[in-house]
């Protein structure tokens, strides 16, 4: 039972053995990487859900290309491996320890599309079974970790993994994947109006950098050990990638770094930005106009109209994805 609790809580509570500061660090990182429901403002989670749905649909199709059904058990078991890998601690000096996140490692071994599918499945199981990350925030978490994180991790490997800088590329891939996910999450939280004093922000950025370096080191160590066991576990970078992958990876990195910069210039979140530019009033009238007559006498709640519009939008995108992904 203890083992199960450890899987469920992903080991962050083991910080209790090491002291309160480690607990605090782990709790902060965990909340940033697996954003719970109730943290993000409506525009943020709605937009991220709408972005993640087609992206996952595309990843599923790409992973299924040349489909052999051996892939279903393989991807599932490798997802279980990433879960279990979090139980193995890596010492990083000064009494603390880190563990594998896994996005980059999966991208180097299974390819970026399959890695995105596995990471999405992990996030879905974590949100559903272990209440680790929200359901409305699932799209956000999937975009941060399974889409942008995996692409950013694969980028250096795809570009420089073939030549002499192979080890550096693997290390950079692991580091970049964690850094991109964390920065994106930070930007989304800031856009949602979660306030952070500058000191806290600085500490979080330092923490991200440290955990990114740890992930890079772990990824490199595991890849080298894997190549010693059986070299064909690790994919050659030229085999499974096209220019679109490079472009998407660059876009993910740019988005993450740009998002943080923009978010820090708009300290009170997207609401204030919207008010300043006058988008809010225009958007509000645009959304509520068709329902205006009902609202005056009936419910008197603009949020209902917004929520309905959001749900209809979600339904539409879901339908499009369903049609796109359906086996033809």
């Amino acid at each position: 039972m203890v083992a199960l609790a450890k899987i469920g809580l992903n080991g962050w509570w083991r910080g209790a053995e090491a002291g309160w500061h480690e607990y605090l660090v782990r709790a902060t990182l965990k909340a940033i990487v697996h954003i719970p429901d109730g943290f993000l403002s409506t525009p943020v989670w709605a937009v991220m859900d709408l972005t993640a749905a087609p992206a996952v649909g595309y990843a599923v199709r790409a992973a299924q290309r040349g489909f052999d059904d051996a892939k279903v058990p393989l991807l599932g078991v490798m997802g279980a491996f990433v879960f279990a890998a979090q139980m193995i601690n890596f010492p990083v000096g000064i009494g603390t320890s880190g563990h594998l996140v896994g996005g980059a490692l999966l991208a180097f071994t299974l390819g970026p599309a399959a890695a995105a599918v596995v990471m999405s499945a992990i996030l879905a199981i974590q949100a559903l079974v272990f209440q680790d990350g929200g359901i409305l925030a699932l799209g956000t978490n999937i975009f941060n970790m399974a889409i942008a994180g995996v692409l950013a991790g694969y980028l250096p490997y795809r570009l420089f993994g073939g030549g002499g800088g192979r080890r550096a590329a693997i290390f950079a891939g692991g580091a970049l994947s964690v850094l991109t996910s964390a920065l994106l999450a930070l930007a989304e939280l800031r856009f949602s109006g979660v306030r952070m004093p500058t000191a806290v922000l600085g500490v979080s950025l330092a923490l991200f950098l440290v955990s990114a370096l740890i992930e890079g080191a772990i990824t490199l160590g595991v890849i080298r050990a894997l190549e010693a066991i059986q070299p064909d576990f690790v994919r050659q970078p030229a085999a499974g990638g096209r220019h679109a992958v490079i472009a998407a990876g660059v876009a993910a990195v740019l988005l993450a770094s740009g998002g943080v910069v923009i978010a820090s210039t708009a300290p009170d979140g997207i609401e204030r930005l919207a008010k300043q530019t006058g988008i809010e009033s225009r958007a509000h009238s645009l959304i509520t106009a068709p329902l205006k007559d009902y609202q005056a006498g009936f419910l008197g709640a603009g949020w209902l109209a917004q929520a309905c519009a959001g749900l209809i939008g979600l339904g539409l995108v879901g339908g499009v994805c369903w049609i796109a992904v359906r086996k033809r």
Binding site: G57, F83, V117, A121, I125
Partner: peptide, 15 residues
């Protein structure tokens, strides 16, 4: 997507 859900189900079984 069915493929994703199948992967998730395998993941849970072998977790």
């Amino acid at each position: 997507p069915r493929f994703l859900l199948m992967v998730a189900q395998f993941l849970y079984r072998y977790l």
